[in-house]
Amino acid sequence: MSDATINTTSQTGEAGFGDYFALLKPRVMTLVVFTAMVGLLAAPAPVHPMIGFAAILFIAIGGGASGALNMWWDADIDRVMKRTKGRPIPAGKVQESEALGLGLTLSVMSVVMLVLATNLVAGAMLAFTIFFYVVIYSMWLKRSTPQNIVIGGAAGAFPPVIGWLAATGSMSVEPWLMFALVFMWTPPHFWALALFMRSDYDDAGLPMLTVTHGRPATRRHIFVYTALLAALALGTAFTTIGGPVYLAVSVVLNVMFLLGAWRIWGRDEAAAELDNYAVERRFFRLSLFYLALHFAAILMEAVLKPYGLGGWA
């Protein structure tokens, strides 16, 4: 009997390559890669394609490393939540110590390589991002404050700043506008998710806004943050990274996003349950396009600039 048990454990316990890759949160990495790339290409400094490619790669690996460290730290709550049960550690495919080892190794490697490929400032910002996501967000805020998503959203907002720094080596206002876009977008995005992933956060004992302040307050918060985000996104159109293309895209997206947030605010749980949170799900899906298209528009303005078409000039 015990032999059979040992045999079963060894069969399910040995991870494949894909399981280690899943530790890096590939879906989050796509956002990191895209926003970092836009930050790098929108910067007013030409970058050698190989150096640009390497910079994006190491920023992505740094983001992935922080994902692995987050999975190591959050393994206990990941086991409870439906959404995260299938992750490599709760599924029993990867040991917690392996995730920690992989996360630390890739963190150091990505920072050192980014410094060597680009400059010290970009490397330092990547190191700070990993620290912020793992220590400030995962270890400290996530389990202690309902504003966890608001402040934690900053971690996901740093990549365009790192991309910009990798290209220029110096700080300016524009990358922080891109930072602010992601930062302000994160709360409505995650609160919509928290509304329709109903019992997940309650079961895990996480102080999400839906748990601590209730669902009507969350709906109100989504609308307020969406209104602030709309003002910021539209205001960005009139800066050096914006332009007519960005403005057109932003107007359409913000009207749709505000409408979605308004509908979420205007209904209660009974109405939401009737259609299985269709409005909240639609808003969540729209939020993915919202951010991607805003950054695509910034990229478009940057690409058109050398031809005298991008921006307002």
């Binding site: 040995e14 991870a15 494949g16 390559f17 894909g18 280690y20 890759f21």
Partner: peptide
């Protein structure tokens, strides 16, 4: 699975 991991 091991082979896949090694190739990866």
């Amino acid at each position: 699975r091991r082979f896949g991991r090694n190739v990866g």
